[in-house]
Amino acid sequence: MTVRIYVGNLPEDVEKQELDTLFREAQEIQSLKLITNRKTNKCRGFGFITVKTEEEADSLVSRFNGQTFREQALKVEKALPRTKDTPETEEAPPASEPVAKPVKATAPVERPTPRRDAPNRNSQRQQNRRKSPAQTTATPVATGNHEATEPDPRWADALRQLKERLAMQTTGS
């Protein structure tokens, strides 16, 4: 039975021969596969080693995990089993190692503005949403007076200023 070992945190410019000599000094390995980018043909930062037995795998992991190689600490551990629908070149590193996912940049979608003279299909739904209590700006205060409300904190300052101006107009006239 063979055991696959994941080797991570490799530099981009690493050569397969360098890794082969590094690991073959320690013990006999059956194969070494360096995973590369198809376009640039540079290392994607990880590879796999195959050894014959579990004991050889355990000794290789204990010896090389955390060892510095080209100023980077190697991450060496037993590989997760391969899934049938994932080819080997697309195999991801073990779940314990975080992988950054690419983010797609998308352009904002322009929506056509509705015509004013055309009836809106969603107008009834929009009116119901406007009236829902979850979207009101005033919240009841827990006092004896059930009509007392507390203004929305986002508008409290503007409301206070408006009340002051109104009070000045009524007293000043």
Rank of each mutant, 00 (worst) to 15 (best):
M1R: 01
S132E: 06
T143M: 09
N41E: 12
I29T: 00
G172L: 03
Q127K: 09
P93T: 02
R24H: 06
A134N: 10
R116A: 08
V99R: 11
G144Y: 08
P119C: 08
P133A: 13
P112S: 02
D58H: 10
L19N: 02
L80K: 06
R154V: 10
A26L: 10
T171M: 10
S96H: 12
V76T: 00
R4I: 04
S132R: 10
A138Q: 13
F46I: 02
R121H: 12
T50R: 00
E18W: 01
A138F: 14
E88C: 08
A92K: 15
R160G: 04
F48M: 02
P151V: 08
L19W: 04
K104G: 06
A57S: 02
E97I: 09
E25I: 04
Q27I: 06
F23E: 00
N65E: 11
V103C: 03
R4V: 01
E77T: 01
E150S: 14
G47T: 04
R165V: 12
L19R: 03
R70W: 08
D20A: 10
N41I: 13
T113F: 06
S31F: 02
I29C: 00
P112F: 03
T137G: 15
K131Q: 07
E56H: 05
L60M: 01
Q161W: 06
W155Q: 15
C43T: 03
K84I: 11
C43S: 13
E91G: 09
P87R: 09
T149L: 15
E12D: 05
P93S: 11
R63A: 11
L166F: 14
T89R: 14
E164Y: 09
T50Q: 08
N65T: 11
L80H: 04
D152C: 09
Q27Y: 03
E88L: 15
V3R: 01
M1D: 04
P151W: 02
I5R: 03
R111M: 15
L159C: 06
P140M: 04
F46L: 00
Q161D: 07
A107L: 15
R4H: 03
P119M: 08
G172M: 07
F64Y: 11
T36P: 00
Y6P: 01
T68G: 07
F64C: 10
F46G: 00
E56T: 07
T89H: 14
N145R: 13
S59V: 08
V103F: 01
V76P: 01
V141W: 10
W155C: 13
P151L: 01
R63H: 12
S31N: 05
R4G: 03
V61F: 03
R115A: 14
A134L: 13
G144Q: 11
Q124A: 13
E150V: 15
Q30H: 06
P119G: 08
R154G: 06
N128H: 04
P119H: 10
L34G: 03
T21C: 12
P108R: 13
K52W: 03
S31C: 02
K33Q: 04
N145T: 09
P98S: 07
R44M: 09
L22M: 09
I5F: 02
M168G: 13
K16P: 03
K33W: 05
N145V: 12
P98L: 02
T113W: 05
V61I: 12
P140Y: 02
